[in-house]
Design a protein around this nucleic acid. Structure first.
Length: 294
DNA sequence: CAGACGTGGTT
DNA sequence: TAACCAAGTCT
């Protein structure tokens, strides 16, 4: 498809976004680059509803990178709560420390420098660049990939992993105008989150249903490669979660005997505790006690 | 590059 | 109810 043909998608999506966008606090006019940065890390693989209260608490507690950098990494882990993937809290703390050390305490406004921060991959660098600084770049997340797969490619869902072709398509679809490009990125994400959802898309509410290749083809089922479902019950991930929860819920150091209660399999429990220590999420202290990192 | 890495709501 | 899903990153 040509760039001119793609351009026909822009206005309906931009108009739809103006009418249906959610008023999320990190999208407010007074949101800071730091607020955007924190939101993007928290939103990785995590629903908006669960992020909202934690983000608000973090912004009050640590309104600037230097505030978080001055705190103990364990405080970041503690106040991460039950968002999941707690290594993100540690990386956020490390990113704040890097901002203080190398960027005058500010979120860098450059894609390469953003990408170099811990916990920041291609998606997050682009998202912060676009949403906090208005940089014209393609933001490609799971929502965007799904919308593009359906509307343009005609497939029910995107491939298991991001491909070079998808990135190229996203760049081709980007509006020329800087301001339009920034809005386009968030608008397509929002469309994927609210209308063009994974499970049961509401095509009747979609602003580009009349141009959607997948809908035109009769919404054919996905026939590409599938990714294996992740197990949970009994995995190390579950045990790590239980151990860390015990440490978060305690005021200070926790006796090994208390940790022994969270999982009966001693070998697995020991392996997971060692892994948490290795990851820097737990500090081993004298007398067989453990704590969140100081 | 496939697999590890949390958590809880929805279908 | 088991499986799927949610603004990915790192190794």
């Amino acid at each position: 498809m040509t760039a001119a043909a793609h351009a026909g998608l822009h206005q309906p999506v931009l108009d739809w976004y103006a009418d249906h966008r959610r008023d999320l606090p990190w999208r407010a006019l007074d949101a800071t680059p730091w607020g955007v940065f924190v939101s993007e890390i928290m939103l990785q693989q995590t629903p908006v509803a669960r992020v909202l209260p934690v983000w608000t608490d973090w912004m009050t507690r640590w309104p600037a990178p230097a505030d978080l950098a001055a705190a103990a990494p364990g405080d970041a882990v503690r106040h991460w709560g039950r968002l999941g993937y707690p290594r993100r809290a540690l990386r956020l703390h490390a990113a704040a420390t890097a901002m203080v050390a190398s960027h005058d305490g500010a979120v860098p406004d450059d894609l390469e420098q953003l990408r170099a921060l811990p916990g920041v991959g291609a998606y997050t660098a682009a998202a912060v660049g676009a949403f906090a600084f208005g940089i014209r770049c393609a933001v490609v997340d799971t929502n965007v990939r799904r919308v593009h797969a359906r509307a343009v490619t005609g497939s029910a869902q995107a491939a298991p992993a991001l491909t070079a072709a998808e990135t190229r398509l996203a760049e081709e679809l980007l509006p020329r105008d800087d301001a339009d490009a920034a809005t386009w990125n968030v608008a397509v994400m929002e469309l994927g989150a609210l209308v063009c959802t994974a499970g049961s898309p509401t095509c009747e509410l979609c602003p580009i249903s009349d141009r959607c290749a997948w809908l035109a083809a009769g919404r054919p089922a996905y026939d590409g490669p599938v990714k294996r479902a992740q197990r949970w019950a009994g995995t190390d991930r579950q045990v790590r979660g239980l151990l860390l929860q015990a440490l978060r819920d305690a005021d200070g150091p926790v006796q090994q005997a208390a940790l022994d209660l969270v999982w009966s399999d001693a070998a697995q429990r020991g392996r997971c505790l060692a892994g948490l220590i290795e990851d820097g999420l737990v500090d081993p202290l004298p007398d067989r006690t453990y704590a969140l990192p100081a």
